[in-house]
């Protein structure tokens, strides 16, 4: 185990990393160490986006990041974006369109949509937002409703 990389801030709370094993992935830290089960494990290999969280506001796949290798930047999971206005808009769009079936992919889609809307700005077109979300899979294939929710959120034309 190497030198303590300093605390990681998860949803506003500092998480000491001194005792976390070097090979632990952020996904496992979140789910099993911190009990934040909203972040899902779909594939554990970068393919599905179910494990998407925000690192300093940017989408990252928590299944492919070592907890102790991350810079000391804030991590936000689905549990931590409640108060955010963009997140509220995304939640309302997903709810209005009933954009979920079993719900397993939903936290990943919501977090990814929030991150991308913030990164690319409110004028991101529908086509761009859809393209950028292509890394998120829905195993129930509920894409039509998810697509309608995305269309509500992306203004600024295609």
């Amino acid at each position: 185990m190497s030198a303590d990389p300093g605390p990681l801030e998860v949803n506003g709370r500092p998480v000491e990393r001194a005792s976390i094993p070097d090979d632990e992935r952020l996904l496992d830290t979140l789910r099993w160490r911190l009990g934040l089960k909203g972040t899902k494990e779909g594939c554990r290999s970068g393919d599905c986006g179910a494990c998407t969280v925000l690192l300093a506001g940017e989408t990252v796949l928590s299944c492919l990041a070592l907890t102790r290798d991350l810079p000391a930047l804030p991590v936000t999971t689905i549990e931590g974006i409640e108060e955010d206005p963009v997140a509220i808009a995304v939640r309302e769009a997903f709810t209005a369109e009933a954009a979920l079936q079993c719900g397993y992919c939903t936290p990943g889609f919501v977090v990814a949509t929030v991150g991308l809307l913030k990164e690319l700005g409110p004028d991101v077109g529908v086509d761009r937002l859809r393209e950028e979300l292509a890394g998120n899979l829905c195993r129930c294939t509920g894409y039509a409703a998810i697509d309608r929710a995305i269309r509500r959120l992306a203004r600024g034309g295609p």
Binding site: G46, G49, E58, T59, V60, L64, E119, A134, G135
Partner: peptide, 9 residues
């Protein structure tokens, strides 16, 4: 390459 989330890392 991959997806936006992949390319952030």
């Amino acid at each position: 390459v991959g997806s936006a989330a992949l390319r952030h890392r």
